[in-house]
């Protein structure tokens, strides 16, 4: 059974200019100990999807769909039930750690509070546990530093503190929303590595949200590519990196600058800009930026099983998959489920 299984997730925002469909019919699942990357440009709805599941949408947002975590539907839970799961069974870390740390409390206070709230340990024990956790994320001199305030830590150290806090209750799922985007490259590598290491040590599942495919290669097993609120392709890391099927995935891959290639190689980019979510229109949302766009792309492409039993929302990929696949394809959630099974 999957640890987290999301089906038919829709997220809408009510803005003065009209309704924005930020996430459209999203299905995905994460197994115990698995790591999934959700990749896409800003505005693709990747963060909003996760926020919706965790009940953290802004006031003008609304979500429908199912998000079964260990068999319980997160979307149906009361605020209190969600609070118990958040920060305990599911931990989250964000791009800017400063937003989730209280600047007026020492790290110790904040960490001890989490432990006593969720695990009911005594203060002394809780403190020892917190120090242990800081040591695990390799913060030097944790006994000293735990007494400090968040602003006394550097960006990288703060993110380590966030990871340590997230892992205090031994969550079974860690959601990391662009955890390294605000950090220096040298620190990025450290943090990415740390996340991967902590995951393997405690066998927790990971959802990594990022716009940079390069980060994904190191820590993730499976990748889900989103564009304009929809899934455009899913597959294992190897499939996505070595055999991308959707032109958008290919574009994202090409746009990563490669240190292991000569400098005079032309730098690729995806032409154009991310679509205006206010005004999406019909057909394949990517077709304006796609080098392979055809007439048929004016119709909505279905998310279908393409080669190797992977999902792709592209007419070309579907065609390549050949006739044998197309028979078992209906469109929508049924095929989504069995393909995530086979993708492993």
């Amino acid at each position: 059974m999957a640890l987290l299984e999301v089906t038919g997730l829709q997220v809408k925002f009510d803005t003065p200019e009209g309704e924005v469909q930020a996430v459209n019919d999203l299905d995905f699942s994460v197994k115990h100990g698995e790591s999934l990357a959700i990749v896409g440009e800003s505005g693709a709805g990747k963060s909003q999807a996760v926020m919706a599941i965790m009940g953290l949408l802004a006031k003008n947002g609304s979500a429908t769909g199912k998000a079964k975590f260990k068999g319980q539907d997160l979307m149906q839970m009361s605020r209190k039930e969600l609070n118990n799961i958040r920060g305990c069974e599911i931990a989250m870390i964000f791009q800017d750690p400063m937003t989730s740390l209280n600047p007026f409390l020492t790290i110790e206070k904040q960490m001890v509070e989490v432990i006593t709230y969720h695990q009911g340990l005594r203060r002394g024990e809780a403190r020892a546990h917190a120090v242990e956790m800081l040591r695990a994320v390799r913060i030097p001199a944790p006994e000293e530093r735990i007494k400090q305030y968040p602003h006394e830590f550097s960006g990288g150290m703060r993110q380590r503190v966030m990871i340590a806090m997230g892992l205090l209750c031994e969550p079974s799922l860690l959601i990391a929303d662009e955890p390294t985007t605000a950090l220096d490259v040298t620190v990025q590598a450290q943090i990415t590595h740390l996340v991967g290491e902590m995951r393997q040590k405690s066998n927790m599942a990971l959802i990594l949200i990022t716009h940079d495919l390069a980060v994904v290669a190191e820590v993730c097993d499976r990748v889900l590519v989103m564009y304009a609120g929809q899934v455009v392709e899913t597959g294992s890391v190897e499939d996505i990196f070595y055999r991308p099927q959707h032109p958008y995935t290919q574009g994202l891959l090409d746009s990563v600058p490669r240190m292991d290639r000569p400098a005079d190689d032309e730098l690729h980019s995806i032409p154009g800009n991310p679509p205006n979510m206010m005004d999406l229109g019909s057909g394949c949302h990517f077709r304006d930026r796609c080098s392979k766009a055809m007439d048929v792309c004016k119709d909505d492409p279905p998310l279908q099983v393409a080669q190797d039993g992977r999902l792709s929302r592209c007419f070309i990929a579907i065609e390549n998959a050949g006739m044998d696949n197309s028979e078992r394809v209906a469109s929508g959630t049924d095929s989504a489920e069995d393909s995530t099974e086979t993708a492993e």
Partner: peptide, 24 residues
Amino acid sequence: IKSVPIPDPKLAARVRQDNWLTGD
């Protein structure tokens, strides 16, 4: 140079050694 991530699952696993900077 070494801390720039390489978008290649096989290489990434191999390069993943203690080549990058420690500390802040």
